[in-house]
Amino acid sequence: MSFWEYANPKKFIATTTPILPWAFGIAAACLIVGLVWGFFFTPDDIRQGSTVKIIYLHVPAAMMAINVWGMMLVTSLIWLIRRHHVSALAARAAAPIGIVMTLIALVTGAIWGQPMWGTWWAWDPRLTSFLILFLFYLGYMALWEAIDDPDTAADLTSILCIVGSVFAFLSRFAVQFWNQGLHQAESVSLWEWTFNVIARFFAFVWNSIFGAEQVIEVAVREENVSNVFFVPLLICMIGFVVLFVALVFQRTTTEIRVRRIRALESRARRG
């Protein structure tokens, strides 16, 4: 029983099909609970009023926009090294989702920025980095579409993904150098985040079991997002991740079937 068994398209479809309804269900449940909780049952922020609630869309989408690219990088490497077709197709399937996530992050950011910063758009490092990421996604998808032969397309897009990752990383630092920004520091930075999620989860469970007398204060180094907002945000993040997984499974399965139909057609033509 090895992980690579799932590189067999048949096995992949057989495994993911039963998971799919569950994944979509969990994603829907998480998103409904998280968004409704976030939008209607959290207090307004003192300084930012109700506009702060857009973070329930903005932060998970921004997180996914970057992580989807990371996932494409990993699948591209797997394709180049081990030549598993499912891997290449998964990268192809993930790209449109990633670009939509980037767009959601940019648009919700603009909607939030208008009342807060008084402008829809500013050439702030973080905003600019996301715009550049958007361009990278565009180029990646355009290259997939432009090449007819699927294996050549998979190879070339994988190389583009790897080189693009390096340059996207470089752009991020270049952009930071170029313009010190308007955007607040990450409210949920990756390093703190992992630590915080675990700590807060335990604190939350603990508090809800033992009630108010024994509230433990989590030793969080920087309290950027208070617990009231954090729990629904966490649920939204989980919702986005599961939704992404479900969509990638769905789209990869579709890609595999498209490929199979094409193979059958060409076999039929040859007679």
């Binding site: 550049i132 355009a142 290259l143 693009g164 340059f167 996207a168 752009s171 270049a174 150098f177 170029w178």
Partner: peptide, 20 residues
């Protein structure tokens, strides 16, 4: 056209530091 779409995002860091 595709070439320019692929290459221009890769040019960003060079342009930033050059113009800066």
């Amino acid at each position: 056209l595709l070439l320019s779409l692929l290459v221009l995002p890769l040019y960003v860091p060079t342009l930033i530091f050059g113009a800066e």
